[in-house]
Amino acid sequence: MAKNIYGILAEFDTATQLVDAARKVRDAGYRKTDAFSPFPLHEIDEALGIKRSILPYLIFAGGITGLLAGFGLQYFVHVIDWPIIVGGRPHLSLPAFVPPAYELTILFSAFVAVFGMLFLNGLPSPYHPVFNVPRFALATREKFFLVVEAADEKFDHEETRKFMETLGAQEVFDVPE
């Protein structure tokens, strides 16, 4: 059984315990770690050393794409493909082209924000090894979990488990692959 494990999971009762434990795990030199909580915890990012995501830059790029697409579309339609004078306005009526381009900027940004977040998070992922621990169902209710992955360089089943047991966890589980 010890062969095929994904990692070792510790369960905590409070957010403070989780953050303290995450700090200790990181200080002990583990890097392939993750924490699970029923709501976002800002302190955990720093405790686990999570770097700021590139997502905002992607969203910005999405917004610029939307803006250019909006203006490009209107330019193509009213200047290149079918120029026609309406209301005495020039073919390139920039002020009138603002609202559609503006809306497309927001639309594209929003799509990148949502689908970029899901993509970077690796979702949808209907299966994940941590789901094998029955108690893990409480991660979406009230409990806090910390996992050290077997893929970590410092990981040693016996030793890591012993170390995890010193963190004040409610319970420590082996997570089968």
Partner: peptide, 11 residues
């Protein structure tokens, strides 16, 4: 497949 991972919450 949401599991409340800290990295997921961050993004």
């Amino acid at each position: 497949g949401w599991r409340g991972s800290a990295r997921h919450w961050h993004r």
